[in-house]
Amino acid sequence: MKPETTAIHALNLVKSATGDVTMPISLSTTFLRGEDGGYPGGHMYSRVSNPNRSALEKVITELEFGEDTCAFSSGNTAGMTVFQALKVGSHIICPDDMYWGLKKQLLTIFQDSLTFDFIDLTDLAEIESFVKSDTAMIWAETPSNPLLKITDIKALAKLCKKHNLMLTVDSTFASPILQNPIKLGADIVMHSTTKYIGGHSDVLGGSLTTAKKNEFWERIINVQQTGGAVPSPFDCFLLLRSIKTLAYRIKGHCENAIKLAVYLETHPKVEAVYYPGLKSHAQYEIAKKQMKDFGGMLSILVKGDATAARKVVNSVKIFAQATSLGGVESLIEHRASVEGPDSKTPQNLIRISVGLEHIDDLIADLEQALNA
């Protein structure tokens, strides 16, 4: 099935006696055992599994062309689970502009159990020079947050195979509609389902999908089920509802984002635009090759300093000045101030999550804000 059809029909695991077209919410925390001590309904305890979570995991697995998925209570928890599943002393190669929440985990939680290097993953020669005897994984993020760098997943997968490394790809900015890292050779794909998969800024979640069920995946399942940082049945219900419209929302995000990027690229008060759909983007050809479209996220450098950038985000009327991304509403933020004093993000960078409002209204709002 095409993704538009998969998104609507792959979740129909439960055939209700009352004939529900939409899967009902199963709130029970425990499930009946049979006379033989087994679980004829397929579920024992909701920390381990739940009908709504199983449906969510099934549809994401199919959308990502994997073998299995684990759903989590947040994107950060999904990422943390990968780090927890690695053996103590493992070395990870990470992107230099890795999402700050996951980078902070490595620097403040895993600093005594893992080692890591943050490098430019657009340079394959540099990546290979950082591979060590204890390197276990390359963690890629493409498009990256907030510089919208594009990593060549297929080339990176080939390098990982050469050195017997795992490749995990944070594909949050792309969603399963625009990019499928497993089809390009990745071992695991991660999403913050809070973002495009949820799409309405009303539910937290994360997911990991594996290309193969192997020993490392069993370690991830153990962290999920034994650690218990799982989404609630209602969270899963909301995500399943949102996935049904994911493909069509993504089309709208992409259409608006390219128009906004083209407008901003020639604006006299904008120094640079980071959007992989622009031919001026350094990795445009790679993005064109591995993505079906270029997404709804872009970043700009305004001419000036942090004060100039803050003035713009404080002057918008339609854009909401808020963290997060992927919702139907357009969001804007001065990114460095979110990331804190150790941020490497340029002080004049503004990150924009382009929503589904009319593009003319979005352009007019940024025009008045840039000229405020």
Rank of each mutant, 00 (worst) to 15 (best):
M137K: 09
I250N: 03
A157H: 10
Y196Q: 00
K244A: 09
L240S: 01
C254S: 06
L147E: 14
I250C: 10
S232R: 05
I220Y: 13
D235F: 01
I221E: 13
T142C: 06
S144E: 08
N145C: 07
G206D: 12
L240C: 13
T245W: 02
D235E: 08
T245Q: 14
I150M: 14
N256E: 11
R241W: 09
S232L: 03
M137C: 14
A261Q: 09
H253Y: 11
A125F: 02
Y248Q: 07
N256Y: 00
I153H: 08
L124S: 15
G198L: 00
S242D: 13
S133Q: 15
K154I: 06
K161L: 12
M190R: 11
L156A: 08
I138S: 02
P176C: 02
E255Y: 02
P233I: 04
V203R: 05
D134P: 14
K212A: 10
L240Y: 00
V262L: 07
K149G: 07
K212G: 09
T226P: 09
E126W: 02
E255L: 14
N214L: 01
I188Q: 09
R241C: 09
L148I: 10
V223I: 10
I177Y: 00
E141F: 04
V131F: 00
R249Q: 04
T209N: 12
W139M: 14
Y196T: 00
A174L: 00
L208A: 12
S129R: 08
L260I: 14
T168E: 06
G228W: 03
E141G: 00
L239E: 08
A136I: 01
L165A: 05
S242H: 11
R219E: 15
D235K: 15
I221L: 13
L264H: 13
